[in-house]
Amino acid sequence: MSSDEDEWVPFSRRPEWSDVKPVPQDDGPHPVVPIAYRADFRETMDYFRAVYLSGERSHRALNLTAEAISMNPGNYTVWYFRRLVLEAVDADLNDEMEYINCVASKNSKNYQIWHHKRWLAEKLGPEVAQKELEFTKRIFAIDAKNYHAWSHRQWVLDALGGWQNELDYCTELLEDDIFNNSAWNQRYFVITRSPLLGGLQSMRESEVSYAVEAILSNPENESPWRYLRGLYKGDPNLLICNNQISGVCLQVLKTKHNIIFPLSLLLELLCHGFQPSTEFVSAVEALRTSVPESSSTSSLANTICSVLEIVDPIRSNYWSWRRSHLPSQVC
């Protein structure tokens, strides 16, 4: 299947480059760390240096940057120069977008590539919003937590729009993997920022239900527990009044499994003035079988910390710190 066309031809043997004198890298007379470059890479960079220094903004310079990028997509100066050339030769930016998507699919964790994409999307404007969202979706199909792709997606939504299906998309991702913290973060981003949803307060009730359901299916999942608190950020009085929230703590505690997060949230509720019914007290009491007798007269908050010190030994210092810093009304 291999053809001669695919074989790399040195620039020195390409007639269209015969007028250019390559500029070799100057590492000084005594380089500290001499690097052994491959011959094709070295030659490409020597020609790149030549056009970069002469400031040649031409189609052949554009092709040269593509070759240099294919050998090292992390060289940011090559990318910068490519943008200068694109502007100078008035290139079709939609073609450029196709090119960069191809490069990005293969190097999805490269800062320069995502930055180049953003530069292009900014120039092309809202009409590419949908395409950009689709592109990040393809990246998430391979790596649902790719930080660069998430940054890009948030930027697209903020700058170019396309919010219509974003909450559904979060739901879809969380159906695939309910532990995906990036998707939970995006969910919070959407309900707090989407111009179509009316903001955090109007989304609160339905989101509490969504998080509670997620917790009940996987009580060991850190993300929805934090999400619940986030829904009442700065509003602890409303947090402690919501029966669904104290209810989910109780429900999970009664199973006696995965009790770290419900105990931690219940502790939070108590510290903000939640008045526990006897049901809460006995659910926690039932967990302290292995706790020394001496603490039997302590408060509920105190007991919670003691239980956590034992069931979460790697963080026992944290829980004992919490115990010694309880607000006076729950000591």
Partner: peptide, 16 residues
């Protein structure tokens, strides 16, 4: 700053 007390790369970016 995010709901978990952490910080991201840009406003709204996941804590890392």
């Amino acid at each position: 700053k995010n709901l978990d007390g952490g910080f991201g790369a840009t406003p709204g970016g996941e804590s890392h």
